[in-house]
């Protein structure tokens, strides 16, 4: 099963932001979208979630064009972690996570699920805290827990579930970055699909199974990390020089050149 974007052309206001982007993400894999600021990653993800309709092209999830699907049909098969979250009113952490259960058919009060999700993001004792009083990284992980309870089981009777994450580790410390990336990789290993926008190329090299490199509203490379994460491609896209080092265990290790190292 796949999540596929085909020739997405998309306007925001009058500006054409995406100029025909293709992406194929497979269930069971972690797909990373990388690229410089403003290259259109978030916009592409918003098209994948069904939030904005492309001017042309389409998004097909588990064999269905999402254009014809209602929010209530999409919610049980895909969950979204936005790049930025807002909140009005002083909700507690537990109440925020429960919002992820809006479309689910949990019969009980959902407490067990909420508790489990908070444990998975490393916040087992935060359920009673006010969301607005948490640190930025804690808030981000609460939002991830909210997305997780929405599609807790990576595979359902009608196919895989899709976790769409916009920079899930952007405000996390190094340990939490690893926790969250492992969580995402585990979700994929169990058959779910994960699409994550990433800025950390080392984490991308460590965890991604498939990489899409974007530049100025176009997908300039798509493939395995080894194929996409090359000096030439990255330096071209990011406009600065990166040095790729290979680790003994066949991994890659990227350093900005001229960092004085």
């Amino acid at each position: 099963m796949r999540l596929q974007a085909r020739d997405i052309r998309l306007y925001l206001g009058r500006a054409e932001i995406l100029h025909g982007v293709d992406l194929t993400a497979h269930a069971g894999r972690l797909t990373a979208i990388i690229g410089p600021n403003g290259s259109g990653k978030t916009t592409l993800l918003r098209a994948l979630t069904g939030e904005i309709a492309p001017a042309s092209g389409n998004v097909v999830m588990n064999g269905r064009d999402i254009a014809g699907m209602r929010p209530g049909e999409l919610a049980p098969i895909r969950a979204v972690l936005p790049q930025q979250s807002v909140l009005s009113f002083p909700f507690t952490v537990a109440e925020i996570v429960r919002i992820g259960l809006t479309s689910s058919h949990v019969q009980d009060d959902g407490h067990a699920l909420i508790r489990a999700a908070l444990s998975r993001v490393g916040l087992p004792d935060h359920a009673g805290r006010l969301y607005q009083e948490l640190s930025g990284g804690e808030q981000q992980r609460v939002q991830l827990a909210r997305a997780l309870v929405q599609i807790w089981h990576p595979v359902g009777s009608d196919g895989p579930r899709w976790l769409l994450l916009d920079e899930p580790v952007s405000s996390l410390d190094i340990a939490q970055q690893l926790t969250v990336m492992r969580l995402a990789a585990e979700y994929a290993r169990q058959g779910g699909g994960v699409v994550a926008i990433m800025h950390d190329l080392n984490l991308t090299a460590m965890f991604a199974d498939h990489v899409l490199l974007m530049q100025e509203g176009r997908a300039v490379a798509e493939g395995s990390p080894v194929d996409v994460l090359t000096d030439h491609r990255l330096s071209g896209a990011y406009g600065c020089c990166l040095q790729i080092n290979h680790t003994p265990s066949d991994g890659v290790w990227l350093l900005p050149q001229g960092a004085g190292l």
């Binding site: 918003r46 979630t49 069904g50 939030e51 209602r70 929010p71 209530g72 999409l74 919610a75 049980p76 969950a79 979204v80 936005p82 979250s85 807002v86 909140l87 009005s88 009113f89 909700f91 109440e95 925020i96 919002i99 992820g100 809006t102 479309s103 909210r146 929405q150």
Partner: peptide, 16 residues
């Protein structure tokens, strides 16, 4: 409740 997270997030969790 969903709208408290903004309109986009509300739609993501299945709200019309």
């Amino acid at each position: 409740n969903g709208l408290a997270l903004g309109e986009a997030a509300a739609a993501h969790v299945g709200i019309r």
